[in-house]
């Protein structure tokens, strides 16, 4: 029996470029990343793309599949192909380096700008911090902690598209997990970093990020949390 063929168009080039058509044999349980790998191994070795873990942990394989940002290693072709056709482009809202590879530098740079790193409280720890798993802070941090840094939310956010300075859902979600980390001592700087028009106050709460996040996180809720904390700090004159 002849293989059933998928018609795949793939973005080739950088910010300027074009879609190139390939035919790839359909396989059961095939992922979009399998399709891209097939093209690179069998049809055109010059195709550039990123992946590492293939099991949804590393966050490196995100692309735009039929117009929607997805983690390609965990996206089955059957679920997204329309009449055996798929269109694969690089992530939106980032500059394209080549083909399906985007420059993630601004994305991670914004994590830094949002004070997304742990800052130990200044008093030297005498003992292990005890964080009750059921406490409000721990639960809030837990809800956002599983981010794999894939950039799917960032590519799906309209405000990022409008305002290149906007920190975006992932960086703000990261900041929120740290705001809720009782061992962290960096919150006054962090709040100043995430408040304002380039930060949490720019979010429209329209939840594209939450809808698309492959880890089912809810950056919108994290950002709403930041707005609440920032409002409280403003009223207390602490911001």
């Amino acid at each position: 029996m002849r293989d059933q063929l998928l018609r795949v168009s793939v973005w080739r080039g950088a910010d300027e470029g074009r879609l190139v058509a390939y035919e790839v044999p359909a396989r059961p349980s095939q992922t979009v990343l399998d399709v891209v790998t097939y093209i690179q191994r069998r049809l055109d070795p010059s195709l550039a793309y990123r992946f590492a873990c293939r099991v949804g942990m590393c966050g490196s394989c995100a692309m735009t599949v039929n117009g929607i940002a997805r983690w390609t290693c965990r996206t089955h072709v059957e679920r997204v192909a329309k009449n055996s056709a798929i269109e694969i482009r690089p992530l939106a809202n980032l500059q394209v380096i080549r083909d399906l590879v985007t420059d993630m530098t601004p994305f991670f740079e914004k994590w830094r700008r949002a004070e997304g790193r742990f800052v130990p409280a200044t008093t030297p720890a005498r003992d292990f911090a005890k964080v009750p798993p059921a406490s409000r802070e721990r639960r809030a941090a837990d809800a956002g902690i599983e981010c794999i840094g894939c950039g799917v939310c960032y590519a799906s956010c309209d405000v990022v598209a409008w305002d290149p300075d906007y920190l975006g859902p992932a960086a703000l979600n990261r900041a929120w997990t740290l705001v809720n980390d009782v061992r962290d001592g960096g919150n006054s700087d962090r709040l100043r970093a995430v408040a304002g028009d380039a930060g949490c106050h720019a979010c429209h709460s329209h939840q594209s990020c939450a809808l698309r996040c492959p880890k089912a996180l809810d950056p919108t809720a994290s950002i709403a949390g930041l707005k609440r904390v920032a409002a409280r700090a403003t009223l207390r004159g602490e911001l």
Partner: peptide, 15 residues
């Protein structure tokens, strides 16, 4: 505008 200013504007608009 400073983060404080932005946060105040946001609060004022909500109020």
């Amino acid at each position: 505008m400073t983060a404080r200013g932005e946060a105040r504007l946001w609060l004022a608009q909500r109020a």
